[in-house]
Design a protein around this nucleic acid. Structure first.
Lengths: 195, 195, 195, 195
DNA sequence: GATGAATGAGCGTTCATTCAT
DNA sequence: TATGAATGAACGCTCATTCAT
């Protein structure tokens, strides 16, 4: 983001930085169009750069995916405390936060699927999501529990995984609505006793 | 289409039949070890047969997958009416049936994932599951609704997909328990009012 | 399978003979439908016999092809002397005989092509044709030359190959007519002097 | 589409260009040795390059075949008008042009055969030949007809096919001489009346 | 730093041929 | 003798990854 032309050793940086931006945009589009498993070539072509350039900036596919979604994951993480402050109840904050997460996932074709793969690239991606979102989710769950609004104990990781899973295939199939599923899950969470 | 094991009028059938069993076992193991997308060669190697043998018995990957899981899906489908008869309430029957389905899915690594893929083979598999299980699930839901035990309307397909999704990655990761997720979902289903 | 209790060693023969007939018919049809390169399996399927049966009767593809066309090649060979006797001039006999040969070839999809291949099977086929037809063609050419009706000397093998080649692809392509080509060739043969 | 060897603005082009040459040479040799149906792997091996390199330069087999023969077909096409100008009579020009075509075909083992195949690659090749050579042949035929030197009407496509067919197997077999066959055919073409 | 040509392992699939039944 | 199940080499093709320019 530093545009200062004077910088000296920063000169190349500006170029590289811009290239990286281009790459991220292209990857974002490619992920939307073809899923995160899209061939690297396709991303390079979309960005109008050589394939080697991708590998220079992002040695593994995970690096690229993480980079593409970093901002949004950060936003989502940041939204937790905010929602907690601004919502009427912790439970409402939790619901709204989960909805944010779902909105994010269902608009990223193939992302939820990839979070469950077990190749090296996907594991790194998974780790990134977990590291950033589990703590936030934990705070929301704790607050709701402290307020006595939760009928059950649940680990934040368990909840995030459940929500993430429910989002898989959420586009493409008109007979399946991830939001409805997540709604049920959250209802179950708040229910005090079982039949 | 005659599957009766006694029927074959040819002498060779016994041999081929046994080979097919071997193949199915190998495929089952391979699916568990590497998911249903495992290369055909790997299955052949595991079974100790030539690659052509696989193609003779199962011309498409979908044929093989369906064959591998047919018995268990049929069992699951058959269990629906039985549970409905033998359980104290339709709601209990539904819960138990879903648990059967979950038990099936979580012990088949990669199966739940594959149900969400969109290549030809996976689509056939998906269709097979849907055709057999959606009607059964629908009966159970209807019975529970008629008994006033359901707090929400839900389409059987939607429920099955949600449950199936929650089972993804259910083994392998000790921090995630699909049964807990499904329990929450079912609780949410029975909940009458939302917070 | 032998139902005649009396027959002795001739009993099996009849069966095998009939089987061979069936095979030849099936092969003939298959050759027409898909060319002589049709997979062995397809011929077996068409004949309703096992694939092993083909290999028992016809160890190589050439054996089968030769068997299929033997009758017609023999007929063609036999027609030479007859035409020579019955035609007004040797030259007319030659023309008519070539026309017979052309009629044979253009109705056998892929046969003319195969006569030019160089794998083992095709070579055997080629040899069979040459052995039977070259002498006949030679007699006709000699007779025409003796009658002073030929403007040029030509070896019978050379002529047969030329005619055979002109027949390649004679079906299928409406823009090419082998008979016209052969007509030109024969005209050229009778022409006395060149421009 | 720019084929000018100097034009490339990238440094790498020279390298790739040379590699393409190598590929074309290897393909030419492989076609001669085994026909144009030679496996792609064999061409790659002959060129000493990876199989992917072939696909990079020539996405389909047809592209490769056309590339291999383009220059010579173009030369042949270009020779038509020249011969017409420089020959004593249109008929002589036609004869010489056909001889050029024959010289080309008989030195490309398997090429004439392939022109008659019907797979996608061969069809493309066929089309390329037809598109380039039929018009030229047509001009020569027209000129000869206008000069009253032709005894027969013939379509240029028909003539080219006949000549092409006569060249099949023209090497390899010392008993068959395509040039003699073509000579007869051309004689037949000029002959005014039939016996 | 950027490029994109080259690589080659790996995939699905076909089919001639063998051989146990 | 007939069968057809089994074999496995071979093919076309894709694409992640490396590396010379």
């Amino acid at each position: 983001m530093t545009t200062s032309p004077s910088a000296g050793r920063g000169a190349k940086r500006a170029d590289a930085r811009r290239n990286e931006e281009t790459l991220l945009e292209a990857a974002t589009q490619a992920f939307v169009a073809s899923g995160v498993e899209v061939p690297v070539r396709a991303i390079a072509a979309r960005a109008g750069v050589g394939i080697g350039t991708i590998y220079r900036h992002f040695p593994t596919r995970a690096d690229l995916i993480v980079a593409v979604y970093r901002h949004q994951v950060e936003s989502c993480a940041a939204a937790g405390p905010t929602l907690l402050r601004e919502s009427a109840t912790p439970s409402t904050a939790l619901t709204r936060w989960v909805e944010l997460f779902v909105d994010f996932l269902v608009t990223k074709r193939g992302l939820a699927e990839t979070l469950n793969s077990d190749d090296a690239a996907s594991t790194a991606l998974h780790t990134f999501f977990v590291d950033r979102l589990v703590p936030v989710c934990g705070e929301l769950l704790d607050a709701a529990a402290d307020a006595g609004e939760l009928g059950r104990d649940i680990e934040p990781y368990q909840l995030l995984r459940a929500v993430g899973n429910l989002c898989i295939g959420g586009d493409q199939d008109p007979r399946y609505d991830p939001r409805e599923s997540v709604g049920l899950l959250l209802d179950g969470l708040q229910r005090r006793e079982r039949a």
